[in-house]
Amino acid sequence: MFIGHFAIGFAAKTAAPRVSLGTLFLAAQFIDLLWPTFLLMGLERVRIEPGATAVTPLVFEHYPWSHSLLAVLGWAALLAGLHFLLRRDRRSALILAGLVLSHWLLDLLVHRPDLPLWPWGGSVLGLRLWSSLLLTLALEVPLFMLGVWLYSRSTRALDGAGRWGLVGLVLFLFVVYAGNVLGSPPPSVEAIAWIGQLQWLLVLWAYWVDWHRRAVAPN
């Protein structure tokens, strides 16, 4: 799951018009923003195994601090709490918490049974949608298109940067997704971790786009 998470971030603008798209992306992708750093620190492990699933060659061996359900609930509470302290907006804080949790729920659909419920081991879950490329695309692509449509419908561009910056962001996400799904396996785990850090640039791009757009009231 990649563009599906960003889809939820786009769509959430309709429920949280005062929150920047950058912050919505940050929440929706939060645990995957943590994960590359935890890989570099040796706290979590992944293995490259071509053919492991029809969609990704990655085997997630150990990622309790970023992707266990209990940890995700903790990260959701932390991000929501920080937002509430800064903005005093309970509704938006709760939406951000829901976005963090949505990442785990979407991963639950596609992953093999490797998502732990708590950091110290035990039960793992996963519904294996990644075993079928067709089913994965049938879920993620329409979800992404819906999210982008909802965002574009609930905002309007103030200038060319707001209009074409959004187009560029959407196209770039599609290109990255196609590369992930159809491209060659990554050369190393270290490369995965460093490339994963570039996701922060997508968050900054979203902040820039949203700065050049304005939320509009629903019809």
Rank of each mutant, 00 (worst) to 15 (best):
G179Q: 00
Q29T: 15
R90M: 15
A193Q: 05
G126D: 07
L99P: 01
V203E: 05
G196K: 02
T155N: 05
R90V: 15
T23Q: 12
I3G: 01
L173V: 11
N219C: 06
G196D: 01
L108P: 12
A157I: 10
L40A: 12
T136D: 09
H5P: 14
P185G: 03
L82D: 03
P17R: 04
A16H: 12
V148R: 11
R153Y: 01
L139W: 01
V170W: 13
T136A: 10
L82K: 02
I48T: 09
A215G: 15
V176M: 06
W35K: 09
L173T: 11
Q197S: 10
F2H: 07
A77Q: 06
I195R: 11
A71Q: 07
N180H: 02
Y177C: 10
F38W: 08
G122A: 03
G160L: 07
S132W: 06
S131V: 01
E190C: 04
Y63R: 12
L146N: 00
L40F: 03
G165R: 04
E190P: 03
D89N: 10
P17N: 12
A191D: 11
W120F: 15
R128D: 13
G179T: 00
R112E: 15
L139Y: 05
G147L: 07
R45Q: 13
L169E: 11
N219R: 14
G196M: 01
S188R: 04
V170K: 07
A215S: 15
I95M: 05
L146F: 13
A7H: 06
E190G: 14
Y63Q: 13
R88E: 14
W194D: 10
F172T: 15
L69R: 08
S20W: 00
F25M: 12
G81A: 09
L133A: 10
L70N: 03
G81R: 09
L137C: 02
R213M: 13
Q29L: 14
W205K: 04
G183C: 00
L202H: 07
L158T: 09
A217K: 09
V100A: 09
G98M: 10
E44C: 01
S68V: 05
L129I: 08
L173W: 09
G162W: 08
V216I: 14
P64S: 12
P119S: 10
L33D: 07
R45K: 14
L70M: 10
E61D: 14
L69H: 08
I192M: 03
L82M: 07
V170E: 13
Q29F: 14
L117F: 13
E190M: 10
I195L: 13
Y177M: 13
G196R: 02
F172M: 09
W149N: 04
Y207G: 09
L78D: 11
S131D: 15
P119Y: 06
P50D: 07
W194C: 00
